[in-house]
Design a protein around this nucleic acid. Sequence first.
DNA 1: CACAAGTATGCTGTATGCAGAAATCATTGC
DNA 2: GCAATGATTTCTGCATACAGCATACTTGTG
Lengths: 220, 220
Amino acid sequence: MTPEGAILPVSRHTLHGELVERLRDLIIEGKLLPGARINEGVLAAKLGVSRTPMREAIKTVASEGLIALVPGRGAVIRKFTPQDVAEMLDVLRILEVAAGQAACARAGDDEIATVCALHEEMMGFYAVRDRLEYYKCNQAIHSAIARLSGNRFLADQHQAIQARLKRIRFIGNEEPTKWAGAVAEHEAIIAALTARDAAALTQALTAHLNAAWHRVQDIL
Amino acid sequence: MTPEGAILPVSRHTLHGELVERLRDLIIEGKLLPGARINEGVLAAKLGVSRTPMREAIKTVASEGLIALVPGRGAVIRKFTPQDVAEMLDVLRILEVAAGQAACARAGDDEIATVCALHEEMMGFYAVRDRLEYYKCNQAIHSAIARLSGNRFLADQHQAIQARLKRIRFIGNEEPTKWAGAVAEHEAIIAALTARDAAALTQALTAHLNAAWHRVQDIL
DNA sequence: CACAAGTATGCTGTATGCAGAAATCATTGC
DNA sequence: GCAATGATTTCTGCATACAGCATACTTGTG
């Protein structure tokens, strides 16, 4: 990938970008709970910055949908209704199915192999019941499938929505039976993808995301 | 809709929201051209505000994708490559087709009638060659179809992408022959929707958005 | 004891100030 | 005459300051 001695631009750390990531993580990791108000001053102080870049980061994350802005009253961590989650999962399904169709048609064997490798890795984590690492692999697989479409914009949109649902889906898969179900569905997805069977892949992805809805439903 | 004497909260105009809209409009209307750098100071002065809310608005619009932030060098109006546009149109097609499918299954006759009414209005503007009003109706129709899905999140995502392409598609349809083509495609869409013919609607929408790509290709 | 009005505090929203990095322009050497 | 280098100016990025609104608390009254 990176040629020996290649000169690549220094990654300029902007405070804004840094804060956006930190803020997103705080929400996704559950340190900031849905419904909770954000006090700019104290949060900025905790992160060791002034209110100005903190506010800019809040505005950015708000436009991504994780935070709601209440005029005159600041920002609150957005609380997703069951309907919100169902709708997001539906769009995720639409995008993934479309990506899957495109992938069967245009993805190279090497690209598909990469996804399979991720799947193997994920199964390894499942074997030792490492739920966090399993989950990371899981997300990586779905992101990879989105990228297989060859449409970067689609992949980006997919990624953004997946990020919003990250926490909810992570909590939703806590039960062992649910987890086992998800694993089985993944097997079907990988099989269909390897065979480049577009129809089967559509079926498998749809089933997987419908099941995901049933899995998270309880915790909403 | 609004009951007689119903008390609805006063619409609080936040400077931030106002600026975001103004900034979006400036870009979409072409007052700020792609590739141009934004000077926070002068733009804020022109709009009669200080740099702080202006910067926040810029960050927000940037996260929407119309502006690119260059660390240490401020913000530039984002320039879309032909590939970017093709990818966005593709996602738009995916979302609209999915919305259309859902609409055929679940939309009420009244909802469909609303879309048809918009179509009639649009044809009126076409008859007198009022391109701007025609275009507004056009966008409204596509947004309405997205809403017919019953999935608000899908509709919102669709809306956001459509907004990004607004200017490019407006310019792309300048030629009379292209315009006529678009009108014909719309007729097919409305016919399929009225008949609740999901397959035909998918066909019509796909054709329309593929054609849209051909129409804008020249100006990129 | 409950409730309402007034007061006080805290927070948001906006403006301004300041340091450092870019960009532009002038100057000097070749 | 052109290129490279240095100085100046502008602009961004962040911090701080201030005003107005929202909320919480307190106090007075029925």
